[in-house]
């Protein structure tokens, strides 16, 4: 039985196969309508999340399966003091697969020790969020047609932004990727990401505080939100949340085929006026996320 806690739990071949399946789903939706009939997905969301939970639920429903679960810790037995492991053990008797989000890092890893059904990490604090990375990879694949030889800029909260860490990790397995990190000093990419992933794989990278200077080089610009829930200090959050706002004037020197991504939710880091720009891909990511979750659920349930 396979669990997916981190994007590196999937090999490049497995990711390619998921992308192929997702594209086949996009082109032949009816073929997959009953693939997971009589199967149940449990969405255990110990932390609120609209899009990820609904994406998982929509994915399972479109595969013909059904969904059970809860959407906050207060509506689960964890509010009575039940451990994550006990909750997962119990749910394993009701469901065939679990998608789990938890505010604490490593909670899904703890769950796998006792689970009899596959667990998908739907986000554990600032740690991993592999299905967002799958959504990002499908988006890059559909927009660019390949993963190699791209200059990828990451902007905003690169310290706590788990989607950034996961995507950097995923891209480290392709060749010719150049990374550009745009962030204030306080939210720079963590040293361990640099030493363990970027430098280890010999990926060229630059760090800067200004978006404009690097914009012409970028094939992909991955914007992130400064997440209040990751800060222990409210004053730091307020000071940093509006540090980078992408506006049309900042895109003047950008490539015509730039792909602007964002894991959403957006607050104000991308101006609404950019939504109509053909380079805006962040809503496409949402849809791609559902297709990749469908492919992943099928794979973990033995369907592909």
């Amino acid at each position: 039985m396979k669990h997916v806690l981190d994007i590196t739990d999937l090999s490049v071949e497995e990711i390619n196969s998921l992308i192929d399946t997702a594209i086949d789903i996009i082109n032949n939706k009816e073929k997959y309508q009953e693939v997971c009939k009589h199967k149940k997905l449990a969405t255990l969301f110990f932390e609120p999340s609209t899009r990820t939970r609904l994406s998982f639920e929509a994915a399972m429903l479109e595969l013909g399966g059904s969904v059970i679960g809860f959407s906050s810790a207060s509506s689960s037995s964890s509010s009575k003091g039940e451990s994550v492991q006990d909750t997962v053990k119990v749910v394993g008797y009701y469901a065939d697969i679990i998608a789990m989000r938890h505010p604490k890092e490593g909670a899904p890893m703890a769950a796998t020790a006792v689970s009899d059904v596959p667990i998908i990490n739907a986000g554990d604090g600032g740690h991993h969020h592999p299905t967002q990375t799958l959504a990002d990879l499908l988006t890059i694949h559909r927009e660019k047609g390949h993963f190699d030889n791209l200059t990828v800029g990451f902007c905003g909260d690169l310290k706590f932004g788990r989607t950034v860490h996961s995507l950097v990790n995923a891209l480290s397995r392709y060749t010719g990727i150049k990374l550009v990190f745009i962030s204030p000093d306080e939210l720079k990419i963590p040293q361990y990401i640099k030493t363990d992933i970027i430098e280890k794989n010999g990926m060229p990278y630059v760090e800067t505080q200004t978006m404009e200077s690097v914009m012409p080089e970028l094939d992909i610009l991955y914007m992130t939100r400064v997440q209040g829930e990751r800060f222990f200090n409210e004053a730091d959050y307020i000071r940093l949340r509006d540090y980078y706002i992408l506006t049309p004037d900042k895109l003047e020197n950008a490539k015509k085929d730039l792909c602007i991504m964002h894991p959403l939710p957006r607050v104000n880091e991308i101006a609404r006026s950019i939504d109509s720009d053909p380079r805006a891909c962040y809503f496409k990511q949402v849809e791609n996320g559902k297709f990749m979750r469908m492919a992943l659920i099928m794979k973990l349930l033995g369907g592909i």
């Binding site: 451990s83 492991q85 505010p103 604490k104 490593g106 909670a107 890893m109 703890a110 363990d196 222990f232």
Partner: peptide
């Protein structure tokens, strides 16, 4: 790490792996 699951679920084994 105050964000680690072991900070709240203290019955979990504390496991560290050699990575380098």
């Amino acid at each position: 790490n105050p964000r680690c699951i072991t900070s709240t679920e203290q019955e979990l084994d504390q496991v560290f792996r050699l990575t380098d």
